[in-house]
Nucleic acid binder design. Structure first.
Lengths: 144, 144
DNA sequence: CTAATAAAGGACATTTTTGTCCTATTTATA
DNA sequence: TATAAATAGGACAAAAATGTCCTTTATTAG
């Protein structure tokens, strides 16, 4: 469904949000440890998230990654997925045709569009804040 | 969503079904041409479909690939996807956790399960026959 | 029986994704 | 101001997915 990079990206963003709720800025090392991901690769992905204004980074000692409280409401999964995997998941044909639309559909077009709309709606309506608070309460996990 | 191999596999199976409705057995060369896919790679994928009894192959002159009329009703997309991509699409965690289930869910677990159930249901309930007849009537396309 | 045709399958090549390592830049603090 | 801590970013490495080529095997028809 999502690329590995995107999976790590979402997990990282959720972890950063969780810590930011406590006013803590976190380093790549800590993030990678807490979400069980390769450090250097995670650093790359965080660069993308930073460039896309999904998380905020601060260099130097006491630096690290954080997310403003307001941004946790604004930023949803759809934005993270788009920043890392692009929009192929929303746009492409399920069977890989270059041109596939309502007027010249592939055999799976209609059914695929339904599923994808559901996915898209779900991603758009799921905010970082929602995911972070689930974690905070101990209902969900980012490791194992 | 699906791998390239799986996309080609589905398109190939649908094309074979369509031709089998006319009693025609088709070669890899023809299939690749008609679904716009790389020949040799398509041949590999057809081997997998054959081993999984999704299509039937016949060697030698007048040989090629075909699907029995009854099998078109039995074989659904879920079986093709499983034969080529395995069951990761049904089983894996959306955020890539090794262990993720109702009792120790990732932050996306519940929402992801919903989408995936829809996808799974759709794939299971879509037969090759249904897809092939859509093509036959000229409602859908396998190229472009 | 022989020649030709088609799938099966193994080995290899290319491309993309995933992952690592090292250096540069920024910045807080002693 | 010097040092150390942190991200940024480029170059490289490994693994997986995609794709190609060639040989073997089965089968049909002359």
């Amino acid at each position: 469904m999502f690329s590995k990079a995107c999976e790590y990206g979402i997990r990282a963003a959720v972890y950063i949000a969780l810590q930011s709720l406590d006013g803590r800025r976190v380093s790549v090392t800590e993030i990678a440890e807490e979400i069980d991901s390769p450090v250097a690769f995670t650093a790359k992905i965080l660069q993308q998230l930073t460039r896309n204004n999904i998380v905020h980074s601060v260099k130097g000692p006491t630096g690290g990654f954080e997310i403003e409280r307001e941004d946790m409401d604004t930023v949803n999964l759809s934005m993270i997925v788009k920043a890392i995997d692009g929009d192929k998941i929303y746009v492409g044909c399920g069977l890989g045709l270059k041109e596939c639309n309502a007027s010249k559909p592939c055999p799976l077009h209609d059914k695929f569009v339904d599923i994808r709309n559901d996915l898209s709606t779900m991603l758009k309506s799921t905010s970082l804040y929602e995911l972070a608070t689930g974690l905070e309460v101990g209902l969900t996990y980012l490791k194992r």
